[in-house]
């Protein structure tokens, strides 16, 4: 049996792009619940234009809305941090499908912190998963996955963008599977191959789990420092707190950093936060492989 109607929960560009694909393929979208309001989202305008029921809902309102539904639907959870309560998950009329930005069963947890850990852990490959939702976090059967290589100088924001791009591509390719109730996917316990190298890959990450609690350690080697700085770099969006460093018992916020490889003309550079020039100290660390230049702003007590 195949369903033909869907609801979407999520926020931002990815649910919007998936909604466009659904409409283009003749699927009916009953509603879109924007479960987290983000800047530059045009989901509401898209819904108004296409006469789709749009609501910006809190977790409580989302639950109440889902409990009020009486139709058989595919519910897509896309860049959505709302956790479906067990009574919703158990409802036979719903087929709930979640997008997760890792190749499950590794790197479960909050989607915004996963790219950070993938970079910090020095992974060489990454990818995405669409899976059925069960009563635990990111544990349901896998419907489709894809993977790609990390690029040099990958940051949290570039990796997030590539996950979205990859996720949309396989969403388009696997649409029939999503709406087919006979497709039950593959249990995660049956997956034997793994693309990841870190022993921490099986942890379930919360958004508050920031690499090394957000502090750079001066004793780290070049690669470790580089991975740390890039892992917290969501520029221009303030997704994570600014990285910090303690030098001679004084705590500084790292407001800008440059990573320069010796013999490499293309100097990588990223701005994290602008500061008033008089309060910024420059700090350069030299390694055999290159330089890391930090621009530091002293953290005021209580700030």
């Amino acid at each position: 049996m195949k369903l033909n109607e869907a609801g979407i929960l999520g926020s931002g560009k990815m649910p919007l792009d998936c909604a466009k694909i659904l409409l283009a393929r003749g699927k009916k979208i009953n509603f879109i619940l924007e479960t987290e309001k983000i800047v530059f989202s045009s989901l509401k305008y898209f819904c108004d234009k296409n006469r789709i029921n749009y609501r910006n809902t809190s977790n409580k309102e989302t639950t109440e809305y889902l409990r009020s539904l009486d139709r058989a639907l595919v519910l897509f959870s896309i860049n959505n941090n709302y956790i479906f309560p067990p009574d919703i998950v158990r409802q036979k009329k719903f087929r709930i499908i979640n997008f997760h930005n890792s190749v499950l069963p590794s790197y479960k947890g909050h989607g915004q912190i996963i790219p950070s850990w993938v970079i910090y852990n020095g992974e060489k490959k990454h990818g995405v998963t669409w899976h059925l939702v069960d009563e635990d976090i990111d544990t349901g059967n896998i419907l489709c996955q894809d993977e790609f290589d990390l690029i040099d100088r990958e940051t949290a924001i570039t990796l997030s963008l590539r996950c979205i791009e990859c996720g949309i591509t396989i969403f388009r390719e696997n649409l029939d599977i999503f709406f087919d109730l006979k497709k039950h996917g593959i249990p995660q316990t049956d997956k034997e191959d793994c693309i990841y190298i870190s022993p921490q890959k099986y942890k379930v990450y919360r958004k508050s789990d920031i690499p090394n609690a957000g502090y750079m350690d001066i004793s780290w080697d070049y690669s470790h420092c580089s991975r740390f700085l890039r892992s917290l770099d969501y520029h221009p969006f303030a997704v994570l707190p600014f990285p910090k460093i303690i030098l001679k018992n004084v705590e500084y916020m790292i407001i800008r950093y440059y990573i320069e490889s010796k013999g490499c003309e293309d100097k990588g550079s990223k701005l994290i936060k602008r500061g008033s020039e008089e309060n910024i100290a420059e700090f350069i660390i030299e390694y055999d492989e290159g330089y890391i230049r930090l621009y530091l702003s002293k953290v005021e007590k209580g700030g």
């Binding site: 560009k13 969501y234 602008r274």
Partner: peptide, 23 residues
């Protein structure tokens, strides 16, 4: 959209030699 903004900010910074704060 939000993803365009990431690219746009990067290009504006390079073209005009400015630093754009997330705020």
């Amino acid at each position: 959209d939000s993803l365009d903004v990431v690219i746009l900010v990067d290009r504006l910074e390079k073209e005009f030699g400015v630093f754009i704060d997330g705020a």
